[in-house]
Nucleic acid binder design. Structure first.
Lengths: 312, 312
DNA sequence: CTTTTCGATCATGGAACCTGATCGCTGGCT
DNA sequence: AGCCAGCGATCAGGTTCCATGATCGAAAAG
């Protein structure tokens, strides 16, 4: 019932353990935390006294230290506790800043162009008092980082995401299509082109799109290494290059402007597994009514969008 | 990056918040934690100073206090952190006590009689150095409690379990059967009896079997209130009473001795959803190799048991 | 053998914390 | 209305605990 002297221990002791594990030395850990080496040494000493087990192997001399079995196990708990503490801090700061106020949402290009306009308009009508602050970032990992740190309340993301303290919800599946210049022989085919036929073409690709990598490896594994002649991160640029006859492009449908006269969009008929777009948020953070509402609206908007696309 | 002064706060501050929330008063919280009311007051004051928000509404006078919105949100984080701390403590103690040693497993009667013997024999052969300590308890909730507190490493349980910090694994489905005295007219039926026919019989039931409650409510909802003439917690007693003609019993197959000549076991053909038996453990605790091995062995043993039963 | 690196140890000054007493406030009791 | 009881806030004081800075010991590198 009473956790003995465990409650007497200080969070700093646990953080010290983590710092040591990260830095690999008492001294460097002390530097990072703004303490003296002596202080760290004593903190670990008391921590080990409380726990009753040796947590760190000190071989002595200038040899590097290492965590014991117990230390490694405890470290995982410490990391979880620290993460939860960050989440708490983020919640408190959000509560302090805007009461029912701001909702900070991360996005990336292809979502921004298609889904967001309708979603934001709808959400603005339904919840006029909530101010949505968007943050676009090319690196999806950066967005996850921000969510973990509590700098974002939600983010759009390509699923699945395997990071631990996150929860995800699938919104829609965005199939990959082949974009070719108007008049390309591939456009004249009655059937969807094979992977090998695509790999024979000069390709225009994206720089750093997580899902793109998967497509390229699949192309590569289909025999011949794909010949990527140009890369860009801008959807319009890629499509423009395709239209100019530089090459063809395998791209998520949402990133393609289907009204562009200079290009033709060819369905890949599921040859490439569709990109799954969803929302991701911090599992441990408080979900405000505004957050829940945003998730709900996003769900319905995307369901509508998916059904109209099927109809069209 | 640096969590400001958040790391300066003491675990006791957080625990104080929880104690206050539980007890509903600064004074009682102080008593529970072995402090003075003054100390608690100051702890909360510093906590609120660090957080920057008022966490507790003090109406003044003898009126009861209440948590603010921020307080409630923070409390949930505190509970998670405290739970994680308990898990860490349990892990450390387990590590301290027996190195690869003891494995503490919770059971209840029906599992104990059928599954455990084979499982323990097998596990003992495969892992002779692990000492398995069994703890049987009639109240399944108690078992869960022990797992949460870290007093047990694993427990058998009727699934599903909705408690939060637990993880579960389904082992086998144990169908409900009707046990009637030999020569009962119900035994002569070609078809499984209906719920109503069962409800008309005098019933012998269990006192506190979580799954049993579900069966009885289903019987009750089938029109007529079931007539329970006797209750016992001992499987043998129940079956003995049935054999003596006191009544019939709806019981999980595993609790029934099918070789008992005085009773007949009738398949209910899925009229009652089967009881799901599985293993439950603390999600946040370290799973030692011994734990993993036990889970693995239990899985295979139960799979074998299920297939032989289907064959028979 | 010396040097260097790193953690352990020790005494000291200072900060934080708990205690005990007191005050202010509010609602209920008479 | 007035008194009292219950509860939290506040304050001064003493103690404990903790970080500092210097020093020591051990082990590898040169």
């Amino acid at each position: 019932m009473e956790p003995d002297r465990w409650l007497g221990l200080d969070l700093r002791h646990l953080i010290a353990l983590k710092a040591i594990a990260d830095e690999g030395s008492f001294g460097r850990a002390a530097g990072r935390l703004g303490y003296t080496q002596s202080a760290i040494s004593q903190q670990i000493a008391t921590l080990e006294r409380v726990v009753g087990l040796r947590l760190i192997d000190r071989p002595g001399g200038p040899r590097p230290i290492s965590l014991t079995e117990a230390g490694r196990i405890l470290l995982r708990h410490v990391e979880a506790i620290e993460a939860r503490l960050f989440a708490a801090k983020a919640d408190m700061e959000a509560l302090e800043a805007g009461d029912a106020g701001r909702l900070r949402v991360g996005t990336f290009q292809s979502v921004g162009a298609r889904v967001l306009p309708t979603l934001l308009r709808r959400f603005g009508q339904e919840h006029p008092r909530v101010e949505v602050v968007l943050q676009e970032h090319a690196e999806e990992d950066e967005l996850l980082e921000l969510v973990e740190r509590g700098a974002l309340d939600l983010t759009f993301m390509t699923l699945p995401v395997e990071r631990r303290p996150l929860e995800e919800l699938e919104l829609l599946r965005d199939p990959y299509v082949l974009v070719v210049p108007a008049g390309s022989p591939l456009a004249a085919l009655k059937r969807p082109p094979t992977m090998k036929e695509i790999a024979l073409q000069p390709l225009v690709g994206f720089n750093k799109c997580r899902a793109m990598d998967g497509v390229e490896t699949q192309l590569a594994s289909s025999g011949r290494a794909p010949n990527v002649v140009f890369r860009s991160d801008n959807n319009g640029t890629v499509q423009g290059l395709v239209g100019a006859g530089v090459g063809v492009s395998v791209a998520p449908l949402l990133t393609v402007d289907e009204d562009d006269e200079s290009t033709v969009v060819i369905d890949l008929a599921g040859r490439v597994p569709a990109r799954v777009i969803g929302l991701v948020w911090h599992r441990d953070r408080h979900r405000s009514p505004a957050t829940e509402a945003f998730i709900a609206t996003a769900t319905t908007v995307c369901r509508e969008l998916a059904s109209t696309r099927v109809a069209a």
